[in-house]
Nucleic acid binder design. Structure first.
Lengths: 362, 362
DNA sequence: ATGAAAGCGCTAACAT
DNA sequence: ATGTTAGCGCTTTCAT
């Protein structure tokens, strides 16, 4: 008897068996009722099962179900840092769609570290996530790329849906904007304002999106017969942008730059701060533009001219693509998509100012 | 033959059986080797198993394992909005600890909606999350509270570890700071600067942390023989703070306020913007202080005086408490903890300025 | 309309 | 040191 109580406690959580027993039906019938499948079940039986489930506070085991159906209903999402508003917004887009479809979204912070990334891919793979969304570009170290490719290959048989979001990944279809062309357009905006000497604060050398943006910047300048006046590498953080901008502004006399283009908003915000502490007026003495259009861009002083990335939509689109691919059992390849971006002109960029302080039109 | 190929594909993912077979051992031995338990296994056997697992790119099923061990190794975290830097920072603290212990953290955005909250609690419960961390205070609607309590009760037998973080929850131990006393200290700071007419921008009426902060503010004023000069309700967002502050500043002449205390940083930032657009200098004409010390506070113009909440540490502490409780099989109650906060004085608060514009000491 | 039985992939007694 | 066996809680043929 005591033993039985012990058992009771260990196996206390009401399972389908208990529900079935209490309703006086087979476990099969209980399952059918509770899953609401369109299976013929007598109304009375159905009621009894529902009642029993309710009385026992039955909560189906997603684990057991996943094991037998081979559908975990989980989606894994890898982001550099969820505290970064850019990633957060994308993640929200993913989640908003996933939730409606009954999927659980597992977001993992990789800190952009390839090893951490791999560990999470493995873990999510062990949980049999039905799709993996890798947000943000991969590093450019070939060894890391190979390691990841091997991982992907190993997961092959499981037909996990895999997708690159906002940054390309070797071997994966990407849902993205055209970073290069966007950076080109932004540069064009600066050129049209009359700027000829433009400084650039780039993202981490090893990140593909950072490279694409810089390439777009350089190409637009080149087309106008120019080259970057000065460039610095940042790390996509405010502090990084602040430092880089300080370095750039130190050489302001030599370079005579009239504008700075930062590869993301955070760094542009840092640049704004650097200008402020140096007593340089924006946009009168110096134009500063960013990339991303995170909430902080609009709230900045002055409000930041930047590239609007449809972050939320990017997330939604990626998730929808995943859902479609999952339904196709991972056998139909995901088609890459490029979403439209937009240059948002705010007060941080203005017409090129001559050294004497007077504006110059274009 | 054709049929067999079909089977192959459906059951393609290498399981323990395949590994065991290939290594020429029993499934048990394979399991023992791969789990690295301190069980006597011949070195040669071990090697063969490891080799087989590698060749087959074996990835254990966390699902199957969770089912039998009754340990999902998952932690559920409910936050209002992960895009809010306050929540994001806390979530990182949780994840940093969880990761080291091999736990997978599932973060869910509730948008502070009680119904969404309940749905996620149910879902996480179905996945047999070993712990649930509810970040941020609950709403004050009794019906919602009862519904949640019922949910918790239903989960009782599963002994899920449950914890409130940064905001209390009926029935749950909380890891938090003392919001009331922190708000009191901040008010004291304002009083010491000579401010006597202070406006207040509160958080949503229905949120317990918001109430605690406002209570602390009122009590500190009361102790000084004062009452709030004017109060407005915000929603913890920048836009909400901006609006509330506009309303407050419209009545500046009547109220003669010299300071505004916002219940969180986002709203304080909005207030800063409202002051700027009204041509009111901060801190010369008006002091503005916030609560939270998110990254944006330091980057604001002027930098924001605020209450530093040890967000990351709060997350770490909560996760550690969970781990401990999980080890104790959820049978030892979690003990509530109050972590220290700190008033961080920056340039947005200053000595009370007289109507004529001259400063006044204290 | 209902039920019996065979697993999903794994761990954990309990042998040997 | 290794293997056999009985499930974990569920879905899903296949019978009835």
């Amino acid at each position: 008897m005591n033993y039985k109580v012990g058992l009771q406690q260990r196996f206390s959580m009401a399972g389908l068996i208990e529900v079935a027993r209490r309703a006086g039906v087979s476990i099969t019938t209980a399952s059918r009722v509770l899953n609401g499948v369109d299976y013929p079940v007598a109304a009375a039986t159905r009621r009894r099962v529902l009642r029993a489930a309710d009385e026992l506070s039955y909560a189906p085991s997603a684990l057991a179900r996943a094991l037998v159906t081979r559908r975990s209903k989980m989606i894994g999402v890898l982001v550099g840092d969820i505290a970064d508003p850019y990633f957060a917004e994308i993640a929200r887009g993913i989640e908003d769609i996933a939730r409606d479809e009954g999927y659980l979204v597992v977001i993992c912070n990789t800190d952009r570290d390839p090893a951490t990334e791999r560990r999470y891919v493995s873990t999510l793979s062990e949980y049999r996530a039905e799709a993996l969304i890798l947000v943000g570009g991969e590093g450019t170290d070939p060894a890391d790329q190979r390691a990841m490719a091997r991982l992907f290959a190993a997961m092959g048989p499981r037909k996990t849906v895999m997708l690159a979001l906002a940054g390309s990944r070797t071997g994966l279809a990407a849902i993205d904007i055209d970073h290069e062309s966007a950076a080109g357009d932004m540069t064009q905006h600066l050129l049209e304002l009359g700027h000829r000497a433009v400084g650039y604060i780039g993202g981490p050398r090893g990140v593909v999106t950072a490279r694409a943006r810089e390439a777009g910047f350089r190409e637009a300048l080149r087309a106008a017969g120019l080259t970057p006046a000065i460039t610095r590498e940042g790390d996509f953080t405010y502090a990084g942008g602040l430092n880089a901008a300080r370095g750039i502004l130190e050489q302001r006399l030599e370079t005579r730059i009239t504008a700075i283009f930062a590869a993301n908003d955070q760094m542009a915000l840092g640049a704004l701060a650097a200008a402020r502490e140096a007593g340089i007026r924006v946009p009168n003495d110096l134009s500063i533009v960013g990339f991303g259009d995170t909430a902080a861009a609009e709230q900045a002083v002055p409000p930041l001219t930047t590239v609007r990335i449809p972050s939320h939509k990017l997330g939604e689109t990626a998730m929808r693509a995943c859902l479609k691919a999952i339904e196709a059992n991972g056998e139909v390849p995901i088609e890459p998509q490029l979403l439209p971006y937009r240059i948002v002109v705010r007060a941080s960029s203005g017409a090129h100012a001559n050294p004497d302080g007077t504006k110059k039109g274009h």
